[in-house]
């Protein structure tokens, strides 16, 4: 080859071609999406995230959670993600418009987390609302156990296709808005996604929310009726799982994140945030484990992960899918 100019032009040209084709054109196609709203301009999804959520995502990034947990649900024709109850529909570009970085992940040494927040007990009122931009409340523990029917009713694993697995209808009362601290209205079809990966776990599975709206007696979650066990996927559950994963799933391969927690002697009154271990032995008498602010943000982030809201451009695996699904983003 003679001459440097053709070489340079070729090298530049191939690079520019690749950039134009794989970045510039897709960016024009899916790089400027707005939240979806209903006809009245309400029920925006996705909603902007809270400060705690954003900080929690940074904690998630710092500690490399993304190397084991994906956040994308693949369509049912390609994979079994939806069968595993990781979501009710495939993920779409619009789900991520407020995510920076968008942590799609490339490895599943742990389950997919796209909808982990959706699995929380509906009544976990202290979970910082993802919809709120001002939420700085930092009390993930001690949820108002409105629906703690889970502690009284036997765990009912939701079989595929059962009504429990049905996704929420795109009503204004969808959980994205319901998460703002108010319990879901009675009769709302906001059934949580049943845990799929926890099948081998001795932890009680999320009680199917069949008894929606039935107010349970106010019991303090710390001294909960069922032996000090936090509700699955509640904030307390996440904290304990982060602190000691194998106390919840014995076969878990997740590293513990004890450095996000402070183990300290109880001075005076025990902290309301202290972790609840299902029984003695984990923490010596007179000691308690309390989450740091980072841990609280991380849990706020996890509990805000929720792609259950229906999107017009994606076909939900629900019988009650939107009547006119737009062109599916494939």
């Amino acid at each position: 080859m003679k001459g440097i100019l053709p070489l340079f032009l070729g090298i530049f040209g191939t690079f520019a071609f690749s950039w134009a084709g794989l970045i510039a054109i897709p960016n024009a196609q899916i790089g400027h999406l707005d939240p979806q709203m209903d006809e009245e301009g309400n029920d925006a999804y996705p909603a902007p995230k809270s400060g705690m959520y954003d900080r929690g995502r940074q904690v998630y990034v710092s500690n490399g959670c993304v190397y084991c947990h994906s956040q994308q649900v693949r369509p049912d024709y390609a994979a079994t993600d939806i069968d595993r109850k990781w979501g009710t529909r495939r993920s779409a570009p619009r789900d991520y418009i407020f995510e920076r970085p968008a942590l799609l992940g490339k490895m599943r040494m742990g389950p997919d987390l796209s909808n982990i927040g959706k699995r929380a007990p509906v009544d976990d009122a202290d979970a910082p609302a993802p919809a709120s931009t001002t939420s700085t409340t930092a009390a993930p523990a001690a949820p108002a156990p409105l629906g703690s029917a889970a502690q009284t009713s036997p765990a009912v694993p939701a079989p595929a296709g059962s009504p429990e697995a049905a996704p929420p209808e795109p009503t204004p009362a969808a959980p994205a808005t319901a998460a703002a601290g108010t319990p879901a209205p009675s009769g709302s079809p906001a059934a949580p996604i049943a845990p799929a990966d926890g099948a081998a776990s001795p932890a009680p599975a999320t009680a199917a929310q069949t008894a929606t709206g039935v107010p349970a007696p106010m019991t303090d979650a710390i001294g909960g009726a069922a032996g000090n066990e936090p509700l699955p996927y509640s904030a307390g559950w996440h904290h304990r799982h982060l602190y000691d994963p194998r106390s919840i799933t014995p076969d878990s391969d997740m590293p513990p994140y004890r450095f996000l927690y402070e183990k300290r002697r109880i001075g005076g009154q025990a902290s309301a945030d202290a972790l609840k271990f299902g029984g003695p032995g984990k923490v010596p008498e007179g000691w308690e484990v309390v989450p740091s602010y980072d841990a609280q943000c991380l849990v706020a982030y996890l509990m805000g992960l929720d792609q259950s809201h229906a999107l017009n451009e994606v076909k939900s695996a629900a019988p009650a899918s939107p009547p006119a699904p737009g062109k599916a983003v494939k």
Binding site: S62, N63, G64, Y67, C68, P245, S252, P255, R258
Partner: peptide
């Protein structure tokens, strides 16, 4: 997974990157 898990800068999710 419990190897050095209590140390923030040696947790797996930081050692790997």
């Amino acid at each position: 997974p419990d190897l050095l898990g209590g140390t923030s800068f040696l947790t797996w999710g930081r050692v790997r990157p």
